[in-house]
Design a protein around this nucleic acid. Structure first.
Length: 353
DNA sequence: CGTTTTTGACCGGCGC
DNA sequence: GCGCCGGTCAAAAACG
């Protein structure tokens, strides 16, 4: 929401085209020629013209900034709606599947599964409920193992359960679980036993084109393939954790080392065409609640502890990249930008002919 | 030949 | 104790 409060979203459009737009007053045209040393108007006029030009561009810049802010607000509002919808949807579907597919003997298990699903979804929309559940239920040791869920959209025809995140994984098992007809693949980090991170990958029940990768634990080593990370599209808090899936969908895993996170859940929703990143982690939320393109401003800023990520350069960098990624892939933004630019150039082009 | 993947067997937790 | 189920092991196969 308050992107601009944290990161300066002003677009530096104060460039000087050599062509003279029709819309510019004659004085400005003259001033441009002054700049080229063609005319010999007094310096005072030159300064005032430049000032006028500066004001005009500044106003345009401001206008674009406002458009950008409105766009971000609309975008976040839509995201919130989707989040709410997913929350409700998962609640209902989880209940119905347990009623339809499961026998009476597996009530407990399905209940636990539902809780897990709800936990992840709630974590995406609100962390207050999660905090309450943490204090109420004695399952803290389970939560302490940091679990991260990543959604990656692939082609439905692609049967491989590969989510490339830049790390090297060794598959050690595959199972067909009861709640999902598609098999679940189990991976261990290739750095095991040094690194005990595990990963489960399974197709979503609702959408077979979505791979759900569940990460358990944190990598205690640096990224094995920094070149891959450098080449990858940057959507994660740090570049080293990125990679591309087999279908060109960028997958990201949490950068716990950089963000020093200890929260239980991170949810990265990479199913959107825009590769929008969703981070649901208390600390990150507290620091991104006013900035991340996810619009998690509803989240309370808990676990403050003085760990201010906003001031960290990598975090700032992440925010900028995140915003740039979201905006440049946003068709409405592209349209608005194109309109703004064409509005500046089009009359000029027409007069050229 | 070393590494990775596959896949059936096994283990442990949980509910009844 | 038994059965179910998710998770893991480990031998064999596949791969580069």
């Amino acid at each position: 929401m308050e992107f601009t409060s944290l990161v300066d979203t002003s677009l530096d459009l104060n460039f000087r085209p050599l062509r003279v737009p029709d819309g510019i007053p004659k004085q400005e045209v003259e001033s441009n020629f002054i700049g080229l040393g063609i005319d010999h108007t007094p310096v005072k006029d030159e300064a005032s013209d430049l000032l006028e030009e500066l004001n005009r561009v500044s106003a345009e810049n401001k206008k674009l900034t406002e458009m950008l802010t409105v766009m971000c607000q609309n975008y976040n509002a839509l995201r919130n709606q989707v989040t709410e919808y997913m929350n409700k949807h998962s609640t209902t579907t989880a209940t119905t599947t347990s009623a339809d597919d499961h026998s009476a003997g597996s009530k407990k298990r399905s209940k636990a599964e539902n809780n897990e699903i709800l936990k992840s979804v709630q974590g995406e929309s609100s962390s207050s409920d999660e905090d309450n559940s943490c204090t109420k239920k004695p399952r803290e040791e389970h939560i302490k193992t940091k679990t991260t869920r990543v959604y990656v959209r692939t082609e439905a025809s692609d049967t491989s359960l590969i989510v490339k995140d830049g790390y090297q994984w060794r598959k050690y098992g595959q199972k067909v679980t009861r709640d999902n007809p598609s098999p679940r693949a189990y991976f261990k980090c290739s750095f095991a036993p040094t690194c005990l991170v595990k990963k489960k990958v399974q197709r979503s029940v609702e959408d077979q084109s979505i791979l759900v990768a569940t990460y358990e634990g944190e990598h205690n080593h640096s990224h094995p393939s920094k070149t891959d990370a450098a080449n990858a599209v940057t959507t994660s808090p740090c570049n080293r954790l990125n990679g591309k899936s087999t279908l060109g969908v960028t997958a990201s895993v949490p950068c716990s080392n950089t963000l020093n996170s200890s929260g239980p859940n991170i949810i990265l929703d990479l199913t959107e065409p825009k590769n929008t990143l969703q981070i649901d982690e208390k600390k990150v939320a507290s620091s991104t609640s006013t900035s991340t393109a996810g619009g998690h401003n509803k989240r309370k800023s808990s676990l403050g502890g003085g760990d201010n990520h906003q001031n960290r350069p990598e975090f700032q960098h992440f925010l900028i990249e995140q915003m740039a990624s979201s905006l440049t892939k946003d068709p409405s933004f592209q349209a608005a930008l194109a309109a703004a630019i064409s509005g500046k150039f089009l009359p000029n082009n027409q007069t050229d002919k």
